Every structure is written in structure tokens, then in C-alpha cells.
Simulated scan of single mutants.
Amino acid sequence: MVLRTMGAFLDKPKTEKHSAHGEGNGLHYGLSSMQGWRVEMEDAHTAVVGLPHGLTDWSFFAVYDGHAGSRVANYCSAHLLEHILSGGAEFGPGPSSVEGVKDGIRSGFLNIDEYMRNFSDLRQGLDRSGSTAVCVLLSPTHLYFINCGDSRAVLSRDGKVGFSTQDHKPCNPREKERIQNAGGSVMIQRVNGSLAVSRALGDYDYKCVDGKGPTEQLVSPEPEVCVLERATEGDEFVVLACDGIWDVMSNEELCEFVRSRLLVCDDLEKVCNSVVDTCLHKGSRDNMSVVLVCFPGAPKISEEAVKKEEELDKFLETRVEELLGNCGETGAPDLVSVLRSIASENIPNLPPGGGLASKRSVIEAVYNRLNPHREEEAVSLTPHRLWF
């Protein structure tokens, strides 16, 4: 299949997903990623349960959102963890080691950034790629949230958002001050009017100001590290995601949506796939990646929730059948018209945070079954024509 482009976008989204799952150290995780409307897939991820160097009861998860290419994101997904672990920190038990671990994380980021700078294609400017990184490092007692850029991590604790990393945007006062001190400017909310993030790995075009250290450049590779003690009873799950997810869902919406899915499905791959599909249908035009890490306190399947979900699906199926059955001589309405008609109704028990967008697949499956010979509707999934 030849994929034509519309500027920076394809004329049809690539909806194939890469998904996986695993468990260990009392955790269960799932992940999913989709290229979507973008011409290239530039996201990457890491999921490791049980770390080397004797840290078998530690785990590490990360999402990397690449830009201007995938080189930096892919290298970090394979090697950032080893740079962190070799950063000179003592990854031992007890609160006395927390600051040491934070120092090791910071050193790992600075070291990998300096290491990649020596790659010939990056050094010569043949590859100008960069990447955000959002990670969670889990010890038996602590959660280390690590952020560099505008991907984001959120912790669900006691049924609500218990913590969120803060995006590194050029307009943030502290970020803007550093950029200006390095001789740069912030225009149209971008570094020098170009780059939308103020911290990232790679992006060496923005890291060549003489007389400034690595953390004083226009774009800094320094991560922000926040440490929380684990709450055995309250901790439910952590979500790591790139901005392709956060562009269309708030922290609260995504946590509510994930929680509602965990009540009806214990397959974390499927839950993550549902997040990605829902964000596509909500209008995200970026690559999309999500990693979901569930603690023992995560919501469990509820018979009542499963029953409500089945009733909702049946209701939506019936509405599609009614809309197509009442079309008369005018012919069957197109899928977008059906979606818009249902979206105008007051439908109870839609998944919180996901809404009708999370049920598009149900509606589309019935529509396709009743219209097996219809022509493909190119307009039904465009980023410029939303239906809700």
C-alpha cells in the first residue's frame, strides 16, 4: 500500500498497534502504541520488571516521544536504563539512598545525552532528532517519577489523581528564563519559534551555546525527578503516555477511563488498546503510546460494571439498527451521519473520560454488518472532521 501524505500527515491513519503485557514484583503492566496520522512512528518505550545489578525487586517503565526522527527515542528505549544504573548511585534500600538514586537518574540522563552527541550522524547534523522521556522507577518502597519534556506520568491513588509530572514547555517561567539566558527566545510557545519542548534528549542544534553547561542550554537534558513513598493500600496504577494521548484527554479523564475499563476487563493490553483507539477517535493526530502499570490495589472486574457495559453495547447496536432501518428511499446514511446522530442523544453509562468515542468500534461493527457492500468512507476518520 502506498501512503500519500497531507503535509505532515497521512491521508489515512495507520491504526495497527504494537502491544504487549507482563508481570512481576507484584505488578501487572500493559502497553500499546499506534502511528496514527503521522508520516513516521517516532515513539518508543521500555518495560523492565526486575533490574540487573541485583535489583531484582525494582522495575522500570518509560515512554519516549521522538521528534524530527526516531533515532534518539529508539536508542534511549534500549539504553537509558543502563546509563541510569551506571550513574554511580547506590540503589540500596532505605530512605537514606533516595537522594543517591535521584543523583544517579540525573547523571544517567546527562551521560546518555553526551554519549549520543558523539554518534556521527547526530554530530554532523545529518540526524536532528530528539526525544522526550517520561519514566517511573519502582523500588519496593518508593516511586521515582522522571520527566524530561512534555510526555506525562500520572498516578491513580485512592480513586483519584494522586500525582502528575509537569510538562516542560518553553512558556514555563523557569524554562523561559533559562532559554533567554542562553541567548534564545520563546515565540509562538516554542524555543526560537521552532521546538515545542524545553527539555529533551538529543536536539543538539539547541545545545551548542558556548560558555553554558549542559543544563543551561536552550534545551536541557536534565530530568525532573519526584519521589513518592508507595502506599500499599491506596496505589492503583500509573499511566505513562506521550502528548498524543494528553492532547485529547486530561489527567482526570484518562484515569477515570482506565479505571472504568479495569472494572470490565483484566487484559491490560486490551485496556491500553482501548485508550489509544479512543484518543484517535477523539481527534489526536500524533503518534500515540501508553504504558499502564497496575499495583495490587488496582480496580478489579465488577459484575455490575460488566452488566452495564453489555447493556450499553446492546443499546448502541439497537440504535444503529433503528437509524439504518428508518432510512427509507433516501438510502442508508453514511457512518459519520450515524455517529453524529447518536452523539446528539443523551446516552447513559458511557465510559467516563472516553465517552462515545470509546464506543466507536461497537457502532462501526454494527454499521459494517448491515452495509457489507458499501464503499469505504474516506471522510469517516479524518483529523479535520470530528463527529462528536
Rank of each mutant, 00 (worst) to 15 (best):
E329T: 04
V338Q: 06
L324A: 08
S337F: 00
E311Q: 14
C327W: 03
I342G: 11
F315D: 07
G328A: 14
F315R: 12
E317T: 11
F315I: 01
P333F: 02
E329S: 07
N326I: 00
V336F: 03
K314N: 01
L312K: 06
S341K: 15
L324V: 09
L335G: 04
G331N: 06
N326T: 11
E321Y: 04
V320I: 14
G328Q: 13
A343E: 12
R340H: 11
N326Y: 01
L324N: 05
G331D: 00
L324Y: 00
D334W: 02
A332H: 00
D313I: 12
L316E: 06
S341T: 15
S341N: 15
L312N: 04
T330F: 12
G331K: 04
R340S: 15
E322D: 14
E329R: 07
L324P: 00
L312A: 04
C327K: 11
G328H: 13
F315C: 08
V338R: 06
G325S: 08
R340G: 15
L312H: 01
L335W: 04
D313H: 11
L323H: 14
L312Y: 01
L324Q: 06
L312V: 00
E329C: 00
E317M: 11
G328F: 12
V336M: 10
E329Q: 00
L312F: 02
E321I: 09
L335K: 02
L324C: 06
L324G: 02
E317N: 12
D334G: 13
V320M: 06
R340I: 01
V336N: 03
G328I: 03
G325R: 06
P333I: 01
V338G: 08
V336S: 13
I342D: 12
E322N: 13
S337N: 02
N326Q: 12
K314Q: 06
G325W: 05
A343C: 14
F315P: 04
C327F: 08
V336G: 06
N326R: 11
I342M: 15
G331A: 09
A343T: 03
D334T: 06
N326E: 12
D313C: 13
D334C: 14
C327H: 14
E311G: 03
L316C: 01
D313K: 14
N326D: 10
L316M: 07
L312P: 04
L335F: 15
V336H: 01
R340E: 15
R319E: 15
G325M: 07
L335P: 05
E317Q: 14
I342L: 15
A332E: 00
S341Y: 11
R319P: 02
A343W: 06
A343S: 15
L316Q: 05
R340Y: 03
V320L: 07
L335S: 07
D313V: 12
D334V: 06
E321G: 05
T330H: 13
F315T: 09
T330P: 02
C327M: 10
L335M: 11
E311M: 10
A332N: 07
K314C: 00
R319T: 09
G325N: 07
C327S: 15
V320N: 03
P333T: 05
N326S: 14
P333H: 03
P333Q: 05
L339F: 09
G328N: 13
A343N: 14
E322C: 08
N326V: 02
P333R: 04
V320P: 00
